[in-house]
Amino acid sequence: MSNKLLEKHLSLYSSQLKTRKLWNILVVFLLTISFLISSTIIDFNFSNIVNGVPRLGDYISQILPSLDINLIFENSETEGSIKYWYFNFKKYAFLLYETFNMAVVSTTIGFVLALILSFFSARNITPNIYGYYFVKRFLEFLRGVPEIIYAILFVWALGIGPLAGIMAISIHTTGALGKLFAEVNENVDLKSCEAIRSHGGNWLSEMRYGIIPKVLPNVISYTLLRFEINIRASTVIGFVGAGGIGQELYLVINFNYYEEVSAIILLIIITVIAIDISSSRVRQKIVGEIND
């Protein structure tokens, strides 16, 4: 390469680098400005947080159990023991089990509906372009409304209990998973679909054999992740009477049964961590096996 040409390339490279740096500075500047504007609008400031934190500490110290190290393993009649703190353990365990099952059922319903709808809401494989727009907007509506609002509606319609919670989470899961599955479908290589079409296969055959085997690892991964989210969601929507441990938690908070609040919260945290760990292991195993 001649020196003249080399110099030309170098100067072109330097000018491109300079432009890129200027753009980066502009983007960081705009992000900072938008952060400051947003903070002002919502009255976000650190002094409020600093002033509020001690009050948070007050509440936490109130809900902590009065455990006595010398009496910790005594019976449920003895104040200061774990059994005394967890005198209602059987009830909590049952409600946690109910919460878990709510998440299982609602994730399953949401998964099936989302998978079906995702074939219509992926632009590259939809059988009908109008159907595509309709289903896409429908999924946006389903996930646009928070679960708690659905839960309030279903508690009003179906009465207090887990059924309302299952309906609420199923609907939201359908919307959320439907979008994720559709995006996975849109990124799939369509060679197998083309082959199935070329030997006379219909749209259903194309979806079953051309799409599902390819998207399966991502679909399973997203579903298990959603299951973890739904465990937490099942707890929260209990606050509006949609069953599970959340309903009990709401009750003890309202009645200021402080020690019961901490007992339930600790159980929820342990359950969520256990499910998160086992679910991510299952996810890695299944996805790994499918990819092998």
């Binding site: 060679k191 197998s192 199935i196 070329s198 030997h199 296969g201 055959s205």
Partner: peptide
């Protein structure tokens, strides 16, 4: 299309499935 079979440069098989299911998928049409 089923009377007029087609094979492709990149084979266009269903990668994750077994050989037999791939061959059987020829009957879908």
């Amino acid at each position: 299309r089923s009377e007029c079979a087609m094979i492709f440069q990149q084979f266009n098989l269903i990668d994750r499935l077994d050989v037999l299911t791939n061959v059987l998928s020829g009957t879908l049409g």
